[in-house]
Write a protein that binds this DNA or RNA. Structure first.
Length: 599
RNA sequence: GCCGACGUGGCUCAGUGGUAGAGCAGCUGUUUCGUAAACAGCAGGUCACCGGUUCGAAUCCGGUCGUCGGCUCCA
């Protein structure tokens, strides 16, 4: 992280927008410096949709300060100051920063590799250590806006002092800035926390506790439907399901190594009658005990145990968020026990299974990360260089053999082994880990797992940890945002709402709903004495895929007037035909082709 | 956990020291209506919690809890 930040600070991309944003961040620093002459500067890189700069200031910034800074920035832009670049020898540069009291900049210089050119940029009186590149003058900066203030640790480490980070963005044209801000507003409406409330999917109770969400009936339908899908696919693909408890002796996790490496992520020990229990933060040790329950033959392998495993992790309070970061979660987990020569095939099969699910869910924006350990961090990772290099090499081979592109993330591995993480892009363009496949030779050692080989001798199996569709919490928070709450038919809590035109149609509507319910379709009737327009508006807000409007004409002709969520009124359809089409669409368990709407 | 902001009926939000408000939702009644919100009435709030300042606190101050945006961490 620290080396990357230095990198960010000193080598911004060179296209005009990036250079302009980089210059804007300098203008911001200049403005802050005017208000706080003693401000110490951290780093000020360009990021995906803008920029930030970190400051060490005598007091914390308020929203009013941001306005003041913006005003000063506007003035600096108007002054149209030229940016001058100059280079200095290391010692001179270092002395300059020290004289300016810029201790963080001194640290940056000290960390620059030998022989690196050390450059400064100056506009007006303001001088800043920076590699650039910049635009030629502040006057060429277009529309900008400061977005927020946040605390950020110097160099990203909790051990370092916390600086104040100001986030901002800039565009060449005002209209571009405006449409970006509009886009953020739109994204807010897709926020799963907002939609979760609006659609009655989940809630939190401060009495129950933060990070412990409660699934409301509608959310429970989405979850159950997804869980059934997961289990059905797993059965098809040769997994066996098990159920294991969420508590275990602390000792289990001492053997596994979790206690040593993962203690901070666990709820504290419960002690009773001299026994120590913990809530499990992972399911693997439980599945391992099942593997060990009998003597295994190579003929049985691979053994694949799957479970929607509920677990508890002590997430720090500031990390919690809606359904995506929680303390109680259920992972679509599985552990594959196999022989050395089965590893790569099993990893590949798991990846292909995950890709197939994404296709059905309509998820296309993702990339593979090979998550490697950090050899320098022996505290976080099991210290066994041979195992690491073997497993990491193996996963690279898998990518090569599948001909799949990927990138590597050092320091992203699990404590026991490297991972293939599938990184999804969420609505805000941020990546989150959803599915994961991990190769592990550590836990089999810890628990002394064995199977009898063809040669009659004992061999150690390899374990593959496979998180299929993440935790139900994170996956569904992702899907809510991905679909903007408009779930495809197979996942929609309420698939159809029947709207009666007048009270006299209610009985017929109820009978129709009953008939569809009997086929496993989720149908409700809006039998209130409200105007049709109002019933439509409400069903639309609830994002129900189909509305069936029923009045005299329909009852007479045996039709329903179909209104499709995305398309509006598509006119009357024979009842039997609609039901058959809907049933087919729901059973397909995939993105809708909209057979009904396509007519 | 750290930095910052915020917390007012079920929901969305007004209200900056002087008797707690609106819209939607809810309930009751009227309306029976064909593709995005009929009309009227009623009810609903220890202004997150605890303490302080003040003749008087939703409003000012302190603390606690919770939420949000970041940092760190992560499925």
């Amino acid at each position: 992280m620290s080396s990357e930040s230095v990198e960010d600070e000193l080598s911004a991309p060179s296209d005009f927008l990036s250079r302009m944003r980089h210059t804007t961040t300098h203008v911001m620093a200049q403005a802050v410096n005017e208000i706080f002459p003693d401000a110490k500067l951290g780093i000020g890189p360009v990021i995906e949709n803008g920029f930030y700069y970190d400051f060490d200031l005598p007091r914390s910034l308020t929203p009013d300060d941001l306005e003041e800074i913006e005003r000063r920035m506007t003035r600096i832009v108007k002054e149209d100051l030229k940016l001058n670049r100059f280079v200095e020898p290391r010692e001179v540069a270092r002395q300059r920063c020290e004289n300016m009291g810029q201790s963080y900049k001194v640290q940056l210089i000290d960390d620059l590799p030998e022989g690196e050119e050390i450059s400064f940029f100056q506009q007006g009186d303001f001088i800043d250590l920076c590699r650039g590149p910049h635009i030629e003058s502040t006057g060429r900066i277009g529309a900008f806006k400061l977005m927020s203030v946040a605390g950020a640790y110097w160099r990203g480490s909790e051990k370092n002092p916390m600086l104040q980070r100001i986030y901002g963005t800039a565009f060449q044209k005002k209209s571009q800035l405006e449409s970006y801000l509009e886009m953020l507003e739109e994204a807010k409406k897709r926020d799963h926390k907002v939609l979760g409330k609006q659609l009655g999917l989940f809630m939190n109770s401060s009495l129950i506790g933060p990070g412990l969400p409660l699934w409301l009936p509608n959310g429970a339908i989405v979850r159950r439907t997804l869980e059934r899908f997961i289990q059905d696919v797993e059965i098809e693909r040769g997994y066996e399901h098990v159920y294991t408890p969420v508590l275990a002796h602390k000792n289990l996790y001492e053997v596994s190594g979790h206690w040593e490496h993962y203690k901070d992520g666990m709820f504290p020990v419960m002690e009773i009658d001299g026994e120590e229990f913990v809530l499990r933060p992972m399911n693997c040790p439980h599945h391992i005990q099942i593997f060990k329950n009998e003597l295994r033959s190579y003929r049985e392998l691979p053994v694949r145990y799957a479970e929607l495993g509920t677990m508890y992790r002590w997430e720090k309070s500031g990390e919690l968020s809606g359904l995506s970061r929680v303390r109680a979660m259920t992972l679509s987990d599985a552990h594959i026990f196999c022989s050395e020569d089965q590893v790569k095939d099993e990893v590949k099969a798991a990846i292909l299974m995950i890709e197939d699910a994404y296709r059905r869910l309509g998820i296309t924006e993702y990339r593979y990360r090979l998550s490697l350990h950090d050899p320098k961090n022996t505290e976080k990772y099991v210290d066994n260089p041979e195992l690491w290099s073997k497993a990491e090499g193996e996963l690279r081979e898998v990518f090569a053999e599948l001909d799949m592109p990927y990138y590597e993330g050092v320091g992203e591995a699990a404590f026991y082994g490297p991972k293939i993480d599938i990184q999804l892009k969420n609505v805000l363009g941020r990546e989150e880990t959803v599915s994961t496949v991990q190769v592990d030779r550590h836990l089999p050692n810890q628990f002394e797992l064995e199977f009898i080989g063809e040669d009659g001798k004992r061999h150690r199996p390899v374990m593959i940890h496979r998180g299929y569709l993440s935790t139900m919490e994170r996956m569904i928070s992702f899907l809510i945002e991905h679909y903007a709450g408009a779930f495809p038919v197979w996942l929609a809590p309420e698939q159809v709402r029947i709207l009666s035109i007048a009270d006299r149609h209610n009985e017929w509507c109820e009978a129709l709903a009953k008939r569809m319910n009997a086929l496993g379709l989720r149908v409700k009737v809006d039998a209130r004495s409200e105007k049709t327009g109002k019933k439509i508006a409400e069903a639309q807000i609830r994002k129900i895929p189909y509305m069936l409007i029923v009045g005299d004409r329909d009852i007479e002709n045996g039709t329903v007037s179909v209104r499709v969520r995305e398309k509006g009124d598509i006119g009357p359809r024979p009842v039997d035909e609609f039901i058959a089409d809907l049933k087919a669409e729901a059973d397909a368990r995939g993105l809708p082709d909209h057979p009904i709407a396509s007519v």
